[in-house]
Design a protein around this nucleic acid. Sequence first.
RNA 1: CGGGGAAUGGCGCAGAUGGCAGCGCGCACGGUUUGGGACCGUGAGGUCCCGGGUUCAAAUCCCGGUUCCCCGACCA
Length: 585
Amino acid sequence: MRLSSLFGVTLREAPAGVESASHQLLLRAGFVRPIGTGLFAYLPLARRALVKIEHVLREELSAIGGQEMQLPVVLPAELAGAAGAEAARFTDRKARDLALAASWEAAIAEVVRSEIRSHRQLPQLVFHVQSQFRDELRPRAGLLNAREFTALQAFALAADDAGMQAQYGALREAWLRAFRRCALPVIMVEAGMGDAVAHRFVYLTPEGEDEIVACDACGYAADRRAATFRKPLGNAEPLRPIEKVATPDAKTIEALARFLAIPRRKTAKAVFLVATDDAAEGRQARFVFVVIRGDMEVNTAKLAAALGTTDLRPATDDEIRAAGAEPGYASPVGLAEQIHRSPLPVVVVVDDAVPASPNLVAGANVPGYHLLNTNYGRDYTAHIVADIAAAGEGDACPRCGAPLRLTQGVAVGRMRWLSASYAEAMRLAYRTADGASRPVMMASAGVGVSRLLACIAEAHHDDNGLIWPPSVAPYGVHLVALAGRDGDALAKAEALYRDLQRAGIEVLFDDRAESPGVKFADADLIGLPLRVTVAPKSLAAGGVEFKRRDAEAREIVPLGDAVEHARRMLDQMAAEVEAGAWHAL
RNA sequence: CGGGGAAUGGCGCAGAUGGCAGCGCGCACGGUUUGGGACCGUGAGGUCCCGGGUUCAAAUCCCGGUUCCCCGACCA
C-alpha cells in the first residue's frame, strides 16, 4: 500500500478531551475515527490489525476443534441477552420486538436445541465473530469501552462435567496462547460468584475500569465483584444487654466510631437499596435492608446474586423513611414491627460476618441515638445471611491470608461455565448411549476483539507512537523513500517495494513528497515493526537502512539482500513474541 | 440518570466591558528544500451547535433545546 493513497491520514494533534494513550494514538495514527459517543469508524489500518487479531483467535480455536459459524446481529428481543436499559430494542413493521444482540448465549441455545440430539454429537465447540452493541451508561477511553465493538464468542458443549472440564481447560489455554501471540500480558482472574466457575482475562492498566483484587503471596486474583476474603471475626465474648445511647451528629460510621471511641468493626451499619428488576416482570420492586459490619463495604454484585436480582439501585431517603427506617440512625432491631408499614416488600440481608461478631453498635432508629450491644439472632433476624462484603485493599487473601492488593484492568476475555440448570431451563437435552435424556453442558467464552486491539496499543507504544507486535501489525514493513535530487533513491525504493510485495511481505510504502522529518514521524506514529529507508545517504553507505520500531539500532544492508533481510527480521520478531519477550510492560 | 465543563474554518485554540470573525497547524497552487514534523509567496475554506428573545447592532446578553467531554452506578 502506498501511503500517498492510503485512506486515512495522520494527525499532528489529537482531538481535545482524549485521555488514554491508545485512544489518542489510534486517532492520531489514522486507525479510527469517532462517529458518535462510543461509536467508531475503523479505517483500513485498524481493519487490517483487527483481521490479524481475528486470525490469531481463529487459529487457536481451530486448533482445539472450534468451528466458526455466524449468528445474526439482530435477534428476537427475548433472545438478545441484555436486560433493561442496556438493550437496544426496536420493533419491525409487524410490531415484533427485536433487539441488537448483546450476547448470543440464548440464541446459540436455540440452535443447539435443534442440532444436538445425541451423545455422539458431543463434545462440540462453535464460535462466531460479530459486531455487538451495548448501550453503555458511559462509554470512555475510546475503543477500551465503546458501545459497539467486535466480539468473538465461543460456546463449548459437552455431555457431562468431565467433558466440560476438558473443554473449559482447552479454551482457557487457547485464550492464553492467543493473548501471548498478540503480545498482550494478561492475568487470569476468578470471576465466578459463589460456586459458579467463571474467569476473566485482564490486562492490568489504570485506564481499565475493572477492579481486581490480587494476592502477591499466593497468586490469587479475582474480579472484585466476585472476590472473597477472610473476614476478621469478632472476639468471642458474652452477649451484653442492649443499651440506648445519645450519639448526636454521628450519622456516619466514621463519626460514630470516633464519638464512642470504638473500632469500626464493632459497629453494624445499615445500607438500603431497591431491587427493581422484579417490577419489570410485573411484580413489585423490593426494598432491601442490608446490615453489614461498619468496617466493610457492600459488594452490590454479590448482594444481587444473593437476592437473585440483576438490578439494584440505592434507595432514596424518602423510600428509607417510607420503609420505617431513619437515615443515618437506622436499626435492624425492631424492624419486624416496622416492616408492615413499608409500601414495598422488605428483604433483610445480613452479611455473614455480622452473626459472628457479638455486641455491635447499631442505629436506634431515632435521630441522634444508637444501640450498644446488638446481636444477630437475639435482637433481630434476616431473610438472607450471605457473604455480601466487598474485598478491598489490605483485606486478607481467602487462600493464604496475606494482604490483598486492589488494582485495575481491562477485561479482554472471559469464560463462564453455565450451570446444568441453565441447560434445563433452555431445554437443551441429548440422548445418552442407553437412551436416557441428559442436559447438554454449556460454557460460554468471549474475547473483545476491538478492545484487544486497543489494549495492545495501550501496552505497546512510546512517546512517538504505536509499536505493533508483528503478529497484529497492519503491515510488516514501513518502507520510506527519501527522494534525492536525482531521483535515484526513489526509483530504487519503488523497485524494493515491488520486490518485497512479490516476496509476500506486507509493505506500507511512503512515496509521498514529504520532508524526512514528516516521514519518520509518521512511521513512528503508525508503528509498523520494521522501518526500511531508501535514501541517498543510505545508498552512499552501501544500501538501505533497517530499523526496528521497538529499538534504536539501525543497520545498512545491501539492496540485493534487503528482501531476505526483512523476512529474517520479521521472523526474528515473531519468534520473540512467541517466546514471550514482548510481554514485559 | 445524578454532578461538573464545553460547543467558533478539517484539527488545536483566541475572540474583557455587544460594534468588519481571528491565530497556529493542516489543505490547494508556485518556487526553494530533502536523514527527524523545513522555508518563501499566493489562495481556498465559517449556519460562530440549533431555535427563540433583548438591541440600531449578538460569536458575545437572556430563555429553551441538542450534541460532546469529564466524575459516579452498568459492561467484552
